[in-house]
């Protein structure tokens, strides 16, 4: 085991897959000479050369579309969006071409592309750079959506994503890039669509993914210490495919659920989750399902207030206590 940052874990996954498969290429804005806007791709250009690690112009519709076209021919492009917020510039390419081409061709064409980059608030960059589009992406059959919360998960899931024959959208988090965690020295893969129980408990299940996993674990610790409440934290890790079975198993154990997401509430991932939980485990619930989201407005700039707009341990704690009243 080594202590790696989330950033290093993603970088190691890229380097290992670039080494393993000559069809893998890394492309995006500033991924090469600049060493990555968030230094995720640092050193890859030097190690693998400009054919495998290519700087693109600021031209998301163009280069994401190019990657999709190349993937149809069997190249396996891993495209970096400097921010997932820029997906809207390439929306037609991502959701008309990547998501639909297999279906519209009657299964004749595959699109083994990975699009990755950070998708989060909390860095005071305002509404244009703080989008969390996992719900919008996952609403499109044909795509897979991954949102890892730890270095271990990020590495194992990204390697699986790169080997996947369907388009995979991989949403990282700039706030987590510097967070450290244990990562095995030997190679490993984590299957997409497998949730992970990050903390076991018996009184309440928190279902979450991405950075709110880390915040929920802090809240769970406080709830245990200060309120003698035992919280189970289920990290979805992948939004689509969705491991609803692990969620339901936890609900059947604790009978109370709080969904926490760094999403606006309307049509968010939590809306789908709460529907599925009530539909499939209604008789196991002792209380209405709780939901804690980002406060429903565009991302505010003001730094101390943005921290309150997003999920944070105190907001999660309050929401949990309200459910257990």
């Amino acid at each position: 085991m080594s202590q790696l940052t989330y950033r290093e874990a993603v970088r190691h996954a890229l380097a290992e897959e670039l080494t393993r498969d000559p069809n893998v290429v890394v492309m995006g804005e500033e991924v090469g000479q600049f060493q990555g806007a968030y230094k995720v791709t640092q050193g890859l250009l030097e190690k693998f050369g400009p054919k495998r690690v290519a700087d693109t112009p600021i031209s998301e519709a163009g280069f994401i579309g190019m990657g999709i076209g190349a993937s149809m021919l069997g190249v396996r492009p891993v495209m970096e969006l400097m921010f997932w917020s820029f997906y809207s510039v390439a929306f037609d390419q991502i959701l008309n071409n990547a998501a639909n081409v297999r279906y519209m061709s009657g299964g004749q064409i595959n699109c083994p592309i990975v699009i990755r980059g950070p998708a989060n608030g909390g860095t005071n960059v305002g509404a244009t750079h703080s989008h969390t589009p996992e719900n919008i992406l996952a609403a499109h059959p044909g795509v897979k959506v991954v949102v890892p919360s730890t270095p271990y998960d990020a590495k194992g899931l990204l390697k699986s994503a790169i080997r996947d024959n369907d388009p995979v959208f991989f949403l990282e988090n700039t706030v987590l890039y510097g967070e450290k965690g244990e990562v095995p020295d030997e190679e490993y893969l984590i299957p997409l669509g497998k949730a992970d129980v990050k903390r076991e408990g018996k009184d309440l299940t928190i279902v979450t993914y991405g950075r709110p996993v880390i915040q929920s674990l802090v809240a769970a610790e406080l709830l245990a210490k200060e309120h003698d409440i035992s919280v189970e934290v289920v990290d979805l890790r992948t939004i689509r495919p969705l491991d609803i079975d692990t969620v339901l198993a936890s609900v059947r154990k604790t009978h109370r659920v709080l969904v926490v997401e760094e999403q606006k509430p309307f049509c968010g991932v939590g809306a789908q989750l709460t529907y599925m939980i009530q539909a499939e485990a209604f008789d196991d619930l002792d209380a209405p399902i709780g939901r804690l989201c980002t406060i429903d407005a565009p991302a505010i700039y003001s730094p101390p207030v943005e921290a309150e707009q997003l999920p944070n341990p105190q907001r999660i704690l309050k929401a949990a206590l309200a459910l257990l009243d």
């Binding site: 519709a61 579309g65 190019m66 076209g69 190349a70």
Partner: peptide, 9 residues
């Protein structure tokens, strides 16, 4: 853009 991707491939 897909056409450019084919040429790239």
């Amino acid at each position: 853009p897909l056409g450019v991707g084919l040429a790239y491939g």
